[in-house]
């Protein structure tokens, strides 16, 4: 069914010489990303850290094909995603789940409907929706709240719903851009535990964060960005600036 069958094979992410410059006419500004080389293997949990303006968000945008790099290649399962045709993009996005700091849930839809919406707009059959949505909600521990509106649940619960929505297409890669940015430490840690559980099931998790406590406790790979460059890349790192 999926047009983006390349992602079904051996999965790894490779960024080769990736740079991104935003052009403002008449103003010379430093590159948001400058010659980034990163390789992420199957099953990895990678935290991308760095101060504001380090290039974390730009990197995430490049990874979900929201923007194209000025130079360089981004290979996912040996396919250069910078050369995807517009018609291939939706199929690519179904294989890459994304979670944001502000959840991006539709306020007038219930928890269940928010997750089901992701399948509906991708032309899934009703049986598929009825089967998948409760299973995913159960995985993130939100099945009991399925009929509540996003305004009736806490921030941590909303982020769980947004993770559920990102997972509903069974993506091979889950990208989380500051998922704990709006949450208190307890809720934040619960979300990170959920991401770890998802990672154990074989999904690559890429986590962009500011949160030192989380990164230190995770003891997984940490890539530190500063001024658009990779400053350090440690396999079991902590947050050092």
């Amino acid at each position: 069914m999926s047009k983006f069958y390349y992602l079904e094979g051996v999965l790894l992410i490779e960024l080769i010489g990736v740079s991104k410059a935003y052009n403002i006419v008449g103003v010379k500004i430093p590159r948001a990303l400058d010659n980034i080389n990163i390789r992420i293997d199957k099953g990895e949990f990678v935290s991308i850290v760095g101060p504001s303006g380090a290039g974390k968000s730009t990197l995430i945008k490049l990874l979900i094909c929201e923007e194209k790099p000025t130079t360089g290649k981004i290979l996912i399962a040996n396919r250069n995603i910078t050369q995807l045709k517009p018609s291939e993009l939706p199929y690519f996005r179904r294989k890459v789940g994304v979670v944001f700091q502000d959840f991006k849930l539709l306020p007038q839809k219930t928890v269940y409907e928010n997750v089901a919406f992701a399948l509906e707009v991708c032309e899934a059959y009703p049986e598929e929706i009825r089967e998948k949505v409760p299973r995913i909600l159960d995985l993130v521990g939100m099945l009991k709240c399925k009929d509540k509106l996003p305004t009736e649940i806490s921030g941590g619960e909303r982020q769980r719903v947004s993770i559920a929505r990102a997972l509903v297409h069974s993506p091979k890669i889950l990208i989380a851009d500051e998922p704990t940015g709006n949450l208190d430490p307890v809720n934040a840690w619960e979300i990170i535990e959920l991401l770890e559980r998802i990672n154990k099931r074989g999904t690559i998790v890429i986590l962009a964060t500011h949160n030192k406590a989380i990164v230190d406790r995770l003891k997984r790979r940490v890539i530190l960005l500063k001024g658009g460059k990779v400053v350090s890349d440690q396999m079991k790192g902590g947050y050092v600036i």
């Binding site: 690519f92 707009v121 991708c122 297409h169």
Partner: peptide
Amino acid sequence: KSEIEIMRLVGASDRFI
């Protein structure tokens, strides 16, 4: 706008949007 943004995010095709 937000609905369209989410549709794109979860991989809805152009036609569907």
